[in-house]
Amino acid sequence: MLTLRGRGIVPGVAEGPALVSTEEISGFGGIDPARGVIIEPRHELFGQCFTGVVLVFPGAKGSSGWAGFFQSTRLMGTAPLAMVFNTVTTKAVLGAIVTRVPTVVECDRDPTSLFRTGNRVRVDADTGLVTVLDDE
């Protein structure tokens, strides 16, 4: 099992499949909160749904609207199950807080290079541990 240690910023525990991006994600213009889908045309996850998965990504890009768009995913029932990111910015942290999903940041190793989309991941934001449960 592969386990990373980070800092939990939104408490809770969640487990599910990972959706991994090596690119930052934009809220305003980058996601469709009603469908929970990445809509930024040049993004590597274009067209993929982040609803009910552990979203693993470097951090947020774009304006302060990021938090509002991710809050909308919570209100519309399309939010990710949990979030793991390393680049801590006010917009990303606020987005995690208003989305109200377990979130771990600043891991001791880069999760975007170690995790693969589809890995079963457990995010324990109470302890700051992120574990790949099906690592080979």
Rank of each mutant, 00 (worst) to 15 (best):
G36Y: 04
F70W: 15
P80L: 06
G77K: 07
L129R: 14
R42F: 12
V105P: 00
P58A: 10
V56K: 02
V84T: 02
A18D: 07
D126R: 12
G47I: 12
G52Y: 13
R116N: 14
A79I: 04
A60Q: 14
T73G: 08
W66S: 02
G27S: 07
F50E: 03
G30E: 04
G65P: 00
K91C: 00
G118Y: 12
A82S: 06
N86F: 00
A96I: 05
V98M: 02
A14W: 08
V13A: 02
T78F: 08
A92Q: 00
T127E: 11
V10R: 01
A92M: 03
W66C: 05
V105K: 00
T22D: 08
I9C: 06
A125N: 11
P102H: 06
E23H: 07
G16Q: 09
T3W: 00
R5A: 08
T78Q: 05
D32S: 13
F69K: 09
M76S: 05
P17K: 15
A14T: 12
S26F: 11
R5W: 08
R35F: 10
L129N: 05
P11Q: 07
T127A: 15
S72H: 02
N86S: 07
A79Y: 04
G16W: 13
L94K: 12
G68F: 11
E15F: 04
R116W: 12
R5Q: 12
V123Q: 03
G47Q: 09
P17F: 09
L114V: 13
S64A: 15
A67D: 09
G68R: 11
L133D: 07
E106H: 02
L55F: 15
C49V: 14
I97F: 08
V93I: 14
D134M: 10
A96H: 01
G68V: 14
P58K: 09
S64L: 12
A92Y: 01
R120S: 09
G47Y: 12
P111V: 01
S63A: 14
I39R: 04
G47A: 10
K61T: 14
A60R: 04
P17E: 15
T99P: 00
V130S: 05
F50D: 02
